[in-house]
Design a protein around this nucleic acid. Structure first.
Length: 589
RNA sequence: GGGCGUGUAGCACAGCUGGAUAAUGCAUCGGCCUCCUAAGCCGAAGAUCGCGGGUUCGAAUCCUGCCACGCCCGCCA
């Protein structure tokens, strides 16, 4: 709790420096208490016991005794060598009601921190519908974008479009060379496309891609060789910046990308800018970059003229050669990525990438290369892949869960719950609530766990609508909304904070939680750990429920001005916090 | 074989810049709707923190060895 720390620190500094303990010795040790029941802030006194030649307990006893009385502090206690500070609830209430807690907005750039951040995420190959395996990237990335905005950073969300190379090449070739009949025949053993999505371009075109993959694997030898030759020449042309071929690629993938973006927008995910990989080939910066790399003293050349950097000299272990140019002179994906990053550094002063754990090595190579060129390396958030209980997901094989189907299912299941719980709502209302709840549940299910943890997607978990889920937070928010609506027309008493003795537990807990809100957000954004904020929102909602239990705002037709003011502040924090998690903060459910 | 990551109650998961009684949800068991939406609230039970060593006043957290799982080790993207 930074608010309290700022009040306590100067006095601690005075007391401790008199003993000869410098601020640097203890400052980082003054932390939020692990045991919430013991206080809000704790200083363990063990570290300086030996230098002071005094028992820890004696040190904390003495500090507790000589610590001055402050408005902000309810109690200072010494327990087993720990010095525990409890914030004064009346002081916390005052801080909250005097707007010392920042509410913010996750939807617009205020730039209040002065920090400019470019977050690149998703960047999935536009070759088929968005599936759950890719979803972790988009949800993680979009949540980071939102949380940075909520924190006050100037954020740009960027999608790097892979518009050249093999994957798009295969798609373009298939669309140009296979008839609908060919495709249907090749995919006859697969499940037919869902009726629901038959007119959605990404679902249509992925069938051409899948059919081509089957041909590349199973056609008779001559035909296979011919296909590889044709695709190879397309890919080759694209990598040399052939504008005509690149344009044909673009018309092949654009409808697919649009379909993917439509899916993502249902989850509230959107992008500020799209940058095409081919940009840096066409405008010559990649060629220029390769010449620059050639001149580095760690550069080497293979027998066939391919270029590489020996990153072993820069501490890379394992395979130390990083190839940036093929024998035929064309660039590689990673080379273009280096060029892209150099460009990005011109656009922003903080770069964040969201990448799957399979990109770790490549990200390291790109990072080391950037440093070799006197650029900083970007911050990278790696996540582990989402698996299905049946195993790994792949677009090529049938075992994928399409995001479109998942969201449809989520909406359907949420509808059932709403209909059961609120039989009085009409169909339209049920549908809109179910949409908000269903998509929120899916997002939250993914965002609440830390990214490096392996994740197995299970329907029953994604669609749990109970405590520990998005609807739990949404529900607490609707409670605050309905109180606000009710209080609107009624007469309110003046804002009078009750004395500590008469404050119920539900109130003090909520006050404490609200006062850590900004701290958690700050840390969440600094460390790119969205799950910390997600879990905090769960706690905030839980605390609000306790307040709801203990502190009736409206009683006998009269509004308690103080309780209402606190409720309103909590409502605003829940509202902006839900938006920060990409959850639609609906007012009724 | 090498590199990186993960391993915490039946399940899922937080804590990992060393600090007190390891937090939370699901599932299990018990209680609460004449009272601002019960998608809620209160309570009970449940953990050799993968295993072995080490450092420390103190280790889930740091070091080290081992085991299990995942990802990577293309002049692919």
């Amino acid at each position: 709790m930074k608010l309290l720390k700022d009040m306590v620190s100067p006095h601690l500094e005075q007391l401790l420096s008199a003993k000869g303990v410098e601020k640097a010795m203890w400052e980082s040790m003054l932390q939020p208490s692990r045991e919430a029941s013991q206080g809000d802030l704790t200083l363990p006194c063990f570290a300086f016991a030996s230098t002071l030649k005094t028992a820890p307990q004696a040190i904390s006893d003495e500090l507790a005794e000589s610590f001055p009385t402050l408005d902000s502090v309810l109690s200072v206690a010494s327990v087993n060598g720990y010095l525990n500070f409890k914030a004064h609830p009346e002081w916390l209430a005052k801080a909250i009601l005097s707007q010392q807690i920042k509410v913010g907005s996750a939807l617009k750039n205020t730039g209040s921190t002065g920090e400019k951040v470019l977050i690149e995420h998703t960047s999935a190959n536009p070759n088929g519908p968005f599936h759950v395996g890719r979803a972790r990237n988009a949800i993680l990335g979009d949540t980071l974008v939102r949380l940075h905005r909520l924190h006050g950073d100037d954020v740009r969300a960027e999608y790097y479009v892979d518009d050249m190379g093999k994957q798009v090449g295969v798609l373009a070739w298939a669309l140009a060379n296979l008839s609908e009949q060919d495709v249907n025949q090749l995919l006859s053993e697969r499940e037919p496309p869902t009726e629901r999505w038959k007119d959605k371009a990404d679902h249509q075109r992925v069938r051409w891609y899948q059919a081509a993959q089957i041909l590349r694997k199973d056609a008779e030898e001559n035909r296979k060789a011919e296909i590889e030759r044709e695709i190879g020449s397309l890919v080759h042309a694209s990598e040399h910046g052939d504008v005509e071929v690149l344009n044909s690629f673009e018309s092949a993938y654009t409808p697919v990308l649009e379909g993917m973006l439509a899916t993502l927008s249902r989850l509230g995910i959107s992008y500020d800018t799209f940058t095409k990989e081919s940009t840096f080939v066409v405008d010559g910066t990649v060629a220029q970059l390769m010449r620059t790399l050639d001149a580095l003293d760690i550069a080497g050349t293979a027998d066939n003229g391919a270029g590489y950097l020996d990153l072993g000299q820069r501490g890379l272990k394992g395979k130390t050669e990083f190839f940036y140019r093929r024998g035929d002179g064309s660039s590689l994906y990673a080379t273009r990525d280096v060029a892209y990053h150099i460009w990005k550094w011109g656009e922003s002063n903080r770069l964040v990438n969201v990448l799957g754990e399979d990109h770790k090595l490549q990200a390291k190579q790109v990072g080391l290369t950037l440093e070799e060129l006197d650029h900083r390396r970007p911050e990278v958030l790696f996540y582990s892949f989402i698996k299905l209980p049946e195993g790994k997901m792949s677009t090529r094989q049938g075992n994928v869960v399409f995001m479109d189907d998942l969201l449809e299912e989520a909406q359907a299941q949420a509808s059932e719950v709403v209909r059961e719980l609120r039989p009085e709502y009409d169909d339209e209302k049920v549908a809109s609530i179910a949409e908000a709840v269903g998509t929120a549940a899916v997002r939250f299910n993914i965002i609440k766990v830390s990214p490096e943890k392996g994740f197995t997607f299970r329907w029953e978990e994604a669609l749990a609508f109970e405590a520990g889920s998005a609807p739990f937070i949404m529900y607490a928010h609707t409670r605050a909304c309905s109180i606000a609506k009710r209080a609107q027309t009624l007469e309110k008493s003046s804002i009078q904070c009750p004395a500590v003795e008469s404050m119920p537990e539900g109130l003090t807990e909520l006050l404490r939680l609200m006062c850590t809100h900004n701290d958690v957000l700050e840390r969440s954004v600094r460390e790119q750990k969205a799950h910390l904020f997600a879990l905090h929102m769960l706690e905030l909602a839980n605390a609000y429920n306790g307040f709801y239990r203990d502190c009736p705002v409206v009683r006998d037709g009269r509004v308690d001005g103080f309780a209402f003011a606190i409720s309103e502040m909590a409502r605003r924090l829940m509202f902006s916090g839900l938006e920060g998690l990409g959850i639609n903060p609906i007012e009724e459910m």
